[in-house]
Structure formats: structure tokens, C-alpha cells
Nucleic acid binder design. Structure first.
Lengths: 369, 369
DNA sequence: GCCGAATGTCGAAGCGCTTCGACGACGGAT
DNA sequence: ATCCGTCGTCGAAGCGCTTCGACATTCGGC
């Protein structure tokens, strides 16, 4: 018996509360869980004792007896090519939402791999799992099916059968960007995408955006090229210079690469192309980022916070054994800011001038560094 | 009795393993914990059963019986003015290190405030707490003292008495930057610091870096000014233009503001000041960031990973009731890259020329956006 | 060849909580 | 009055694990 008093840790137990309030242990439990009716008088007496003693239920005991840990796991990626601020925003939203549902969040990094998931799930440390940054052919997808724990994926694997997925509708996002540019009269556009490695490993959002861009381009009679792009200033610059040298008529740019946004603007201005006068730029990036750039960028943000909230809410429903849709794709929202404008009237001479400018820039920067 | 077989969840229990291996439950437990000697033969038999049945100990039961959850809490900040990538790096390092010590990590955001800490600690959900981004006068500091759970702070509060803190020695970092510039012959330098709000709320690292910069400047006979700086391109540009207009002789810049690094370089080049030929730049920022800038930046990285490792290791020692030092300050490490060089010979005319250039830039950018 | 100390294993007592069945007390319908 | 159905509360049985003392064995020392 934990009879007379407090734990070694100094924490009172439910038995202490019961004794202090003059009721049975089970009554205290029911006051806390609300699973049986308790008279107003008794409830108040118990609650008073709880407050007075500073009682907090022991999580382990609760989990053991109730078979629910009230904890969910969040599996975050930590590879290159991820958008760090987006991940943070997302994690934050998940923690906040989870707390609203009276759950805590256990953080896993995907470098422990499938073994980590297995350990956590089998050990009943968590009730459910949120997996972020799911690739098209992700090893964790079959594993999750096998484990049979409630789970929600952020991202869209090639075969989501039997699982639950949430994501921004990147395909639609790509379309929206192109439609915006097309409606402004642009006829040649380019997508400056994620690093090649991201495409190579089959990351859904990159592929889907590209598909959306190209599809919308065809539909609206716009010429479009899509090129991957590493995340460093020099590479971005090379890409952009090359691009305009080869396709001087390009007047619209879709940038899906956070790290590239700054260098793109720098390079364009070095090329003598002004944003948005000569070239319009649409970015797929966080709003905060778009606001801080100059000029402020027309953008399609990844609604990390909403995705996080949705994911948690879906997971909670699964924990309550409710049926949920297999896939939830959030509609993209394009915010027009100062980086897009009507396409310039086509100037035939542009090509040559730009190519020359490009070489000057490259030369200047080579000398400087 | 959990007698005949498996949990409803399908997980085997320790009793199943014991039965399968033909030993007592306690023997299985001792095989797992190694707290008593078990013969080679028995151990192997038990381990084989464990593998065969796919047994994973139930975390809740273990926590209840052993009074150790094998989980630590990580309290992350989510305010403005934090260096998001650094936080991520740090979180990653903490998770990885914790796993090496057979612990998991529960993620808390500081917006649940002290209540969250209290709940977690009192409920024995975690064995110890790691608090990141501790301010000089942080409300959580007295709370942690009161809770009496093992904890480690990242950052250095004004009064760390009785607690355990780890951080980069930012004071020394400030000095190192100035010493580097001084040794290259620079005689007028400026610190472009964190946003004003960060100083205002008493964030240790900003204050300590500034102090280090100013102190080293005095000691080496260098003129130094320190100015806070918001995290958007326009503000950075204004600051830099203003700075050189007022103090044209400045030839060294210490930048402690990740978001400012890009804009600083852009602005300098717009001002006709070349890096490092005319102005040397030292950044306090992640290595990856410094490598990707062009020119590559001489920098003092915040060793997020090492801090994370250290923090976890200290916490583990505290969990084992070992004595640990009250404060651990990691020495800064300056990596020389391409953004610093010998100071230019003083040119008396500079002042005027620069002021003019500055105005041109401002005008040009106003027009563009 | 006997004794004490290791060594290896077992059984049982909890850890603090939830939950289920039981059971008075009370009130309305008969 | 009597019976039944609620309502409010209680006691006890676990949840799956760790840990403590006890109990055989085995072994080295003299």
C-alpha cells in the first residue's frame, strides 16, 4: 500500500487524494475522467483536494491501466532538401494541436529508421504516429500498414491504400502558379525546382508541383521548362544565367526552392532584368519569407500549420476508431504581392543583350570570390 | 492473469516470453536489464524467445514499476528572432544522442508555458528536462528549481545557481571575431546584431556576443559600434547604408543575424564595396550557411550539434545522480573563408563616395518595389 | 570434507491507475 | 405499500513490469 502519504518523489497519489477527500479511489478516478456520474458535492470536494495536494496523475500508471498513453509520435525528416522553417512550423502546429486534444508529442527522427517506429509502436509508448515527409515509395508505408497502429502521413505516397494522408495539393499549386502567370500574359515560363536529389528520391511534392506546372502550361498554351536546382547561391546563379541565355523570352519564373529565392532576385537584377517589370516571380514558400523579400513575393505558401492541425485532428479521430478519408488535399492559396505583373511586350533584341549581360555577371563574380 | 497468450493488441508480454523460454518472469527481466547475473545458456534461450515472439517491453508498465520513463522532455522556443535551422540542428542532435542513451524525447513548445513543464514533470511522463533558449531572466528558471527534476538549460540565465547550463561561449565568440578582424588590420568595425526585440527580452547570447565584441574592440584599440537589426531585407539594407554613410571608415562587419547575411552582401555590393577587398565580413551562423554564401563566409558557427550532445550527456549524468558542473561553455571556433582579408589602406575620399552610392541604391530599390 | 561465499533462479509484492460489477438509497409508477 | 430503474459510490481485480528476499547449487580455501 502506498498508504500513508506521498511517493518518494514527493508526489501525492490518487490514494492520497481519495483519503483527503474521504472517498474511494475509484471515485477520484471518475471525477477525473468523467466516465461515470458523480454528484456535484463530491466532485467539488475531490477537485478541492486535488488542487490542495497538487495532484497530477502518474502517466505511466495511467497508460498501463487504460492502455492509452495519450502520446503521439511525430516522425520528422532531417535530410537535405527539406524546408527547415516549414518543418518547424509544422512541428509547432502538431504540438499545439495535440495538446488541445490532451496528448503529448514524442519526437522521432527518421534516421533511426523503421526500427524506431517499430519500437515505439510495439512498446505502446505512443497511441498513434504522424509521419512527415513521406516519399512516393517510402519504406515506412508498408511498415505502418503492418504495425496496424493509427497513423497519419504528411505527404502522398504512390500507394496510399489503407492509410491516411494529408498534404497540400501541390499539383494544383503548380497549376495555380502557371495560371496566374498566364492570366498576366506570360507565354514562356520556367520552374526553378528543388535540388535534383529531391526529385531522384521520389519526393512527392516536387514531382507533383512539376507535373502541375507542366500540365497547366500545356492547357494554357504556355511554354514551360522545369529545371531542378541545388540550394546554393552559385548554382542558382549559374542556372538562372544559363536559362535566360538559352531562352531569352522567358518572362515568368516559378520558384520552389526556398534557398533559391534570394539568389534568384540578385541574379536577375545583375542581369538587368527587373522584377516584376521584366520578369515575374511566383514562389512556393512560407508567407513570412515572401513578405520579407524585396520586392515582396507573390507566393503560394505551404500551409504547414493547417496541415499539422488537420493531421492531428485526423489522428485523433482514428484513435477514437472513427472512419476518416484516405486522403486530404488542402487547396493551395495564391497571394499576389509585388513580384508579378503583366508580361512585358516581347522585344526581339532581348536574347543577345541578355546573353552578354549574363557573361558579364559571371565574370564579375568569378573575380570577386 | 495475462495467462494464455497475447494482449488484445497482439503484443506478447514478458509472461509469454518467460513461458516460452521456460523461465520465471523475473529472469526475463534480469536478462533485459542486466541487473543480475544470468547464465549464458539461460540468457541465450530467453533472447531467442524474445526475438521469436517479437517482444517489446511495455513502456508504461516499465515506467510504473521502475519509476523511470526513459523519456526526456525537450522544450523548444517558437518565437521570432530564433535561428530556425540552429534549433532544428539542435533538436536533431538531442534526439539522436538521447537514443544512444536509450531515451526518447518528448517535444514541448514553450507556449504552453510553465504549466506544461509542471504537468510533465509531476506526472512522471519524463525523467528530466532540456530547456532551450533560456533568457537572462527566464520564468522557467525558478520553476525548474522548484520542480526539482533533473534539468539542463541551453543558454545562460542571469543566475544559474543550482542549475546546469550549456552554451556556446558567445562572449568569447564576439571577442574572437573582433580579434580576427583586428589582426587583419581593421580599425573600425561594426556588429550587426539580432533584432531589437531579442535584446529587449534579455536573450543571453545576443547580449554576451555584443559584450564580447565591444570588450575586445577596446582591448585591441578598435572602434566598434553595435546595432540591432530586424530580419528583413529592407531593414538590413537601410541599416547598412546608414552605417557606411555615417562611418565610412568601417572595414569590418560582424553579423550575428542569419537572415541578414544575404542582404548585407547584396547591399555592400550595391554600395560598391567589395567583400573582402573593401569590407571584411565575419558571420555568426551555421557552417552550412557560410559555405553556401558567395563569397564563402568566414564564420563562427553555433555548434548546435555539440551543444545538444553535451546537454543530453549532462542530463544523463544527472539522472544517474552524478555531480555535474554548473556551467559548460563551449569554446567558439572561427573558420576563415573568403569573406575576410587585410584591411584596405585608408582612403580619405571614401566617405563622400559611399554616401552618394548609398542614396543611389535606396532610390533604385524604392523604384523597383 | 566442511563452511561460507558466490552464482543463478524463482515467487511474490507492489508501482498508481482504470474499470467492472455490486449495492445501497431514493423516487416515480403501479 | 411494492417494485423497478437510476444515481452515486465503493471495493477489488488487474494492466505488465521491476525488484527484493529466499533458495538451491556450486566452488574455493583450509
Amino acid at each position: 500500500m502506498s498508504g500513508r502519504g506521498r511517493l518518494p518523489s514527493g508526489q501525492p497519489t490518487i490514494a492520497d487524494v481519495a483519503r483527503h477527500a474521504g472517498v474511494a479511489v475509484s471515485t477520484v478516478s471518475y471525477v477525473l475522467s468523467g466516465k461515470r456520474a458523480i454528484s456535484e458535492v463530491t466532485r467539488n470536494r475531490v477537485l478541492a483536494s486535488i488542487r490542495l495536494l497538487g495532484y497530477h496523475p502518474n502517466a505511466g500508471a495511467r497508460a498501463l491501466a487504460s492502455r492509452r498513453a495519450n502520446v503521439i509520435a511525430l516522425v520528422l525528416p532531417l535530410r537535405t532538401g527539406i524546408q527547415v522553417p516549414v518543418v518547424m512550423q509544422f512541428a509547432t502546429a502538431v504540438v499545439t494541436s495535440a495538446r488541445r486534444h490532451d496528448h503529448d508529442v514524442l519526437l522521432l527522427t527518421s534516421d533511426e529508421g523503421p526500427a524506431g517506429l517499430r519500437r515505439i509502436a510495439a512498446g505502446a509508448l505512443v497511441d498513434g504516429v504522424l509521419v512527415m515527409d513521406v516519399e512516393l515509395h517510402d519504406v515506412r508505408v508498408p511498415l505502418l500498414r503492418e504495425l496496424g497502429r493509427p497513423s497519419v502521413l504528411i505527404g502522398l505516397p504512390a500507394d496510399p491504400g489503407g492509410l491516411t494522408c494529408v498534404d497540400l495539393d501541390f499539383h494544383r499549386a503548380g497549376q495555380v502558379c502557371v495560371e496566374h502567370l498566364a492570366s498576366l500574359g506570360h507565354r514562356r515560363v520556367a520552374l526553378l525546382g528543388a535540388p535534383p536529389a529531391v526529385y531522384d528520391r521520389g519526393t512527392g511534392f516536387a514531382h507533383r508541383t512539376r507535373a502541375g506546372v507542366l500540365e497547366a502550361a500545356v492547357r494554357h498554351g504556355v511554354d514551360a521548362v522545369a529545371l531542378p536546382c541545388a540550394e546554393n547561391a552559385a548554382e542558382v546563379q549559374r542556372r538562372v544565367v544559363e536559362l535566360f541565355a538559352q531562352q531569352p523570352g522567358i518572362s515568368g519564373l516559378v520558384v520552389q526552392n526556398e534557398a533559391a529565392v534570394g539568389p534568384v532576385q540578385t541574379t536577375l537584377s545583375a542581369l538587368g532584368r527587373r522584377v516584376p517589370h521584366d520578369v515575374s516571380v511566383v514562389a512556393v514558400c512560407p508567407d513570412q519569407f515572401a513578405e520579407h523579400a524585396s520586392p515582396r513575393l507573390t507566393s503560394v505558401p505551404v500551409p504547414a500549420e493547417e496541415i499539422g492541425r488537420q493531421a492531428v485532428s485526423l489522428l485523433m479521430r482514428k484513435l477514437r476508431d472513427e472512419a476518416v478519408p484516405e486522403r486530404t488535399l488542402l487547396p493551395p492559396r495564391l497571394t499576389v504581392r509585388d513580384s508579378t505583373a503583366a508580361a512585358p511586350a516581347a522585344a526581339p533584341g532581348d536574347g543577345v543583350a541578355v546573353a552578354v549581360a549574363g557573361e558579364q555577371v559571371v565574370a564579375a563574380l568569378d573575380g570577386a570570390s
